[in-house]
Amino acid sequence: MNRMTNSLDFQAQALTLRAERQRIIAGNIANADTPGYVARDMDFAAALREATGTQAAGTTMAGATATAPGHIPIGTGSTSELGLKYAAPSQTSLDSNTVDMDRERASFVDNSVKYEATLRFINTDVRTMLDAMKSPSQG
């Protein structure tokens, strides 16, 4: 039934997480001069696994399996604190701020490119579906 939108759902989750990560990196860049600020970043792979864990495998959850119908699924929802980690300072500074601007800029660009890639995947999925819906006479 939902085979049509399965891939779309996955990409939608990925897009949400990409937007979330973009926001976190923006926060790091905004606080580049704040004393005592500790840079944070998202373990994207883990976050995506957690966000899509329930859908991909049916009844298996992230780290747990539902063996009875009454079991409440865990690991649903797109975002949680779990995916967030603190960045280790590469060059310590006197005001204990751990934002490494080079790394943040690189992560930011990397994340923007991957966000656009996910968007393109979604667009292609939509186009494929629309093409499949057309009758042969429509070309």
């Binding site: 979330e20 926001r23 976190i24 790091n28 905004a30 797109s78 975002t79 604190e81 967030l84």
Partner: peptide
Amino acid sequence: PDGVPGAGV
């Protein structure tokens, strides 16, 4: 409303 708060300055 959901998830981690953003860090403004």
